[in-house]
């Protein structure tokens, strides 16, 4: 859906984005993370046609974004980090205005407005002035507005900034719903735990470079050199350690009483075989689980604690 090839953006002598390569497949919910000034917003603005790239290409659904054509604009729905409001404009009129800007007929706008306001849970606010809505409602309205022309790619630049916990949960559910509808979603955020819950893949940017991209677990595995596994044995700890050390793809990280932490660089089948051999050697296991990837630790590791 989104192909970014060698994307570069210079502001004078400062390089905000440096030869960025990224591919986001259709239907992905992609999280874009990075410290402030990493180049996330610059990348997003180039993809949306709001900024001219210094080099490289961006293709959205096969259309070159650098041209800023109408065809490309129809493919993208953009939700900025800040919702600017017009005084004295109702929710319905707000939707109507943006629908007209995409050349939609008033009948289509009216029909889709009803559907989308229902989707974002704002049906009862249709005749309410936009500036009287809460921040969370405004953000959801902004998502509805971005969906009005039925784009294939939805780009959200820090949609949760400034939202209260309830509004964040609502936004998270909304994005999950949109993903289930087959939309490709790119979301930039600083709230890493939420990204980890929502996104199936992420890209981590640091100082204009994409330092990692892909599925969170895959990145974790690559960085750790394998899966980190927690084992709790009831007895026979020494036998278990001895047996584990004999395995070629296992590295014992720590042993604390009956708790063991190992790194396994093998396949799923090899991990299963390891469990089997432990049981065969009379080691009684009460727990054997893979450590869940922490996006925070991954982020800190990749960005060198930049944030």
């Amino acid at each position: 859906m989104l192909y970014i090839n060698n994307l570069t953006k210079n502001y004078g002598s400062f390089t905000a984005v440096d030869r960025l390569n990224l591919h986001i497949p259709e239907g992905d919910l992609f999280g874009f993370v990075g410290p402030n000034g990493a180049g996330k917003t610059t990348t997003i603005r180039i993809v949306c046609g709001l900024l001219k790239a210094s080099g490289g290409t961006v293709r959205v659904g096969g259309t070159n974004a650098a041209v800023g054509s109408k065809a490309m604009k129809r493919l993208i729905g953009y939700v900025p980090d800040f919702f600017g409001v017009y005084d004295n404009l109702k929710v319905r009129e707000y939707m109507e205005m943006y629908g007209s800007m995409y050349g939609m007929t008033y009948r289509d706008i009216a029909r889709l407005t009803d559907d989308l306001l229902e989707l974002v849970n704002l049906s009862d606010k249709k005749e309410v002035y936009v500036d009287t809505l809460s921040r969370g409602m405004k953000q959801r309205l902004c998502v509805a507005r971005a969906m009005l022309h039925n784009p294939r790619l939805l780009i959200l630049d820090e949609p949760n900034s400034g939202l209260d916990p309830r509004a964040r949960v609502e936004m998270k559910e909304l994005l999950k719903n949109l993903r289930s509808m087959g939309k490709t979603i790119v979301i930039s955020s600083h709230i890493l735990s939420e990204l980890a819950e929502m996104c199936n893949s992420i890209g981590i940017m640091n100082r204009g470079h994409l330092v990692a991209a892909g599925q969170i677990d895959d990145i974790m595995q690559q960085l750790a050199g394998g899966s980190r596994i927690h084992i709790h044995v009831l007895s026979e700890t020494e036998a278990a350690v001895r047996l584990l050390k004999e395995q070629a793809k296992v590295r014992v990280e720590s042993v604390r009483e009956n708790d063991l932490i190992i790194t396994h660089s093998g396949t799923e089948e090899e991990i299963c075989a390891l469990i089997g051999s432990l049981i065969q050697n009379q080691v009684i296991l009460t727990d054997f689980h893979r450590e869940e990837g922490s996006l925070e630790s991954l982020f800190m590791q990749l960005t060198g604690g930049a944030q």
Binding site: R45, C48, G49, L50, K70, K73, R74, I76, Y78, P80, F82, F83, G84, V85, Y86, Y98, M101, Y102, G103, R145
Partner: peptide, 16 residues
């Protein structure tokens, strides 16, 4: 004013 209100970017992403 649209830039100050940060609505200009949204406007520019439309087909206008």
């Amino acid at each position: 004013g649209e830039k100050e209100r940060q609505t200009f970017d949204i406007m520019m992403t439309t087909c206008m």
